[in-house]
């Protein structure tokens, strides 16, 4: 087995654990490369099916290419797609001038709405440890309390492959099957498995997106990588961090920690 086989098998094991223990399960699909990899792994775990809903938290500010990709592949893969938007906040004129407030309203609060509406006990999320220092501290199975708080100071131990299989009442569990993957692992896997991906990630006129989210908060990077091979080559030589183009991480040193403590992904 090579490293990708190992990562794949571990992720599938975790997905199946989540499915065994939590019947009200959903996979959070942001249409980006990580959560699309996650959806792919769900299909592998269930021999081509996606036996629980895929949840898209729509801020309304996503790239048009993302909406198109979402609609095409949710059909193709027979997914039960649930879309949640915080309409009240948008109607009240929420924009991304204040990053923390905007992410909190349109992502975190929208996620709370979705959980309340559908009664999800557990969510599969495609976060990775190498994305951001604070995510390096995550567990594979990570409980959130009623108010969504992540008690990062006192996380439950997680030994070997034994994960938290029961939640206290009034909490939901976040499950992170991709935690051990790095950015370049994702790309190597997308290539090996020929997973479809939106072409926002590939260079046009000398620029490409390395991480995608809202049009308002994502800046493309200078790059001539026009296809997967070139992206892999670029990543093998770069040192700039992946989320460098993401505005919400930047405000101050601990923005990401604050966002995450409030329940951000």
């Amino acid at each position: 087995m090579d490293k990708l086989d190992e990562l794949e098998s571990q992720s599938i094991y975790i997905i199946r654990e989540a499915y065994y223990h939590y019947k009200k399960l959903a996979v959070l699909w942001s249409i980006g490369k990580d959560s699309t990899t996650l959806v792919w792994l769900v299909r592998k775990a269930f021999f081509g099916k996606v036996p629980f809903p895929a949840l898209h938290i729509d801020t309304s500010f996503k790239f048009p290419e993302m909406y198109k990709f979402r609609d095409e592949y949710s059909k193709k893969w027979g997914m039960d797609l649930k879309i949640t938007m915080n309409k009240a906040a948008l109607d009240a004129g929420m924009t991304c001038e204040k990053k923390l407030d905007c992410c909190n309203a349109l992502k975190t609060n929208a996620l709370k709405m979705a959980i309340a509406e559908h009664g999800f006990e557990a969510l599969l999320l495609g976060i990775r440890r190498d994305e951001h220092g604070i995510r390096a501290k995550e567990r594979y199975f990570s409980p959130r309390d009623e108010s969504f708080q992540w008690n990062y100071q006192d996380q439950p131990p997680e030994l070997w492959d034994q994960y938290k299989s029961q939640a206290e009442e009034k909490t939901h569990i976040r499950v992170h099957p991709l935690l051990g993957w790095t950015e370049v692992d994702i790309w190597r896997y997308l290539k090996r498995e020929q997973v479809p991906i939106t072409d926002l990630y590939f260079s046009k006129q000398g620029k490409r997106y390395r991480s995608i989210g809202c049009t308002t908060c994502c800046n493309p990077i200078e790059s001539n990588a026009r296809n997967i091979d070139e992206v892999i080559e670029e990543l093998e030589t770069t040192n700039t961090s992946e989320r460098a183009g993401r505005a919400q991480d930047k405000e101050d040193t601990y923005t990401m920690q604050k966002l995450r403590a409030l329940g951000y992904m």
């Binding site: 440890r129 190498d130 220092g133 390096a136 501290k137 790095t182 920690q257």
Partner: peptide, 18 residues
């Protein structure tokens, strides 16, 4: 990376880095 860790200069939780 946790604010408390930096202020108090002590590692609280396990982390992984590449």
């Amino acid at each position: 990376h946790l604010e408390e860790e930096r202020k108090n200069r002590v590692t609280i939780d396990t982390a992984q880095i590449f």
